[in-house]
Design a protein around this nucleic acid. Structure first.
Lengths: 144, 144
DNA sequence: CCAAAATGTTAGTTTTGACTAATAAAGTTT
DNA sequence: AAACTTTATTAGTCAAAACTAACATTTTGG
């Protein structure tokens, strides 16, 4: 139940993504998702094994344990929520929002990303107008 | 003109804060702002000296050069903008917003924090209502 | 003015997370 | 099944950023 480091969170998230559809993946699949060398991955895997978050036989497939999957889903969910929030609120490309989400996902707590989720859900054209203070016919008030 | 690491950005920002009012500060003042050991600070200072961002004589005062002050102000400005944004948008205490800002300030680019600034400027009660999708009398539309 | 307190520096470690080069195992092809 | 290709691992390095303990300098108070 120990808290993972940022980098290990990235790895477990990558394993989850690389396993999409199946319930296992290979080191090289992880490599495609993250952009790091294989030895770096092997090293991270050894820690995740110790923590009981993945299983892997030597030269074999990597798969998440129950615990590992729970953590991975958690991180991944945050990632998606943050990406959507950043995309909508700041009007940036998905690729850029992804990059920002990758970093922020290790920082914000539950309260914050649940609020991001709510905001994203309610987001529409008018939100944008209100946010950036452009003229809004439905309202008489001014920001002064 | 080299890009500083996150940690060095924190140090230079701390120097700026610790020098408030004066144009110099001491190692122990920096220590009050950041929460790190003196040797860590000394080490960071040695790098900032190499980069020409501060000057300090042995056992003497630390002060920012023109370049250093420019960078420091930049980081500090980002910090303030992000803090305000987080406080308002997510309705969190200033202390918590500060913590988040400390981390995000090293991540987001100019485009993003300028947008944060705009949003903060325009922020009012109605923004909050629109953001979180509560009932808004002035509007007939629904988020579906 | 000199001893104690406050402040700053040096030296040496530690941890984390990355890398390259070399090696080993597994899989594929003919 | 031997040779070749792909994939994974090991071993050894490196850099950033922190720490503690020991030492050096400056400041201050009796």
């Amino acid at each position: 139940m120990k808290k993972l480091s940022k980098s290990l969170e990235d790895y477990i998230e990558a394993i989850y993504i690389a396993s999409e559809g199946k319930n296992f993946c290979r080191v090289k699949d992880i490599q495609k998702v993250l952009n790091v060398s294989k030895p770096s991955i092997v090293n991270a895997l050894s820690i995740l094994k110790e923590e009981g978050l993945i299983v892997q036989e030597k030269y074999g497939y990597v798969s998440l344990t129950k615990d590992g999957e729970r953590k991975a889903k958690n991180v991944y969910k945050k990632h998606k929520i943050i990406t959507e929030f950043v995309e909508k609120i700041f009007e940036v490309e998905n690729v850029d929002a992804q990059k920002i989400a990758c970093e922020i996902e290790h920082i914000v707590d539950k309260n914050i990303y649940e609020r991001m989720e709510k905001i994203s859900k309610n987001f529409n054209e008018r939100t944008k107008i209100v946010l950036y203070g452009e003229k809004d016919e439905t309202d008489g008030s001014k920001t002064r």
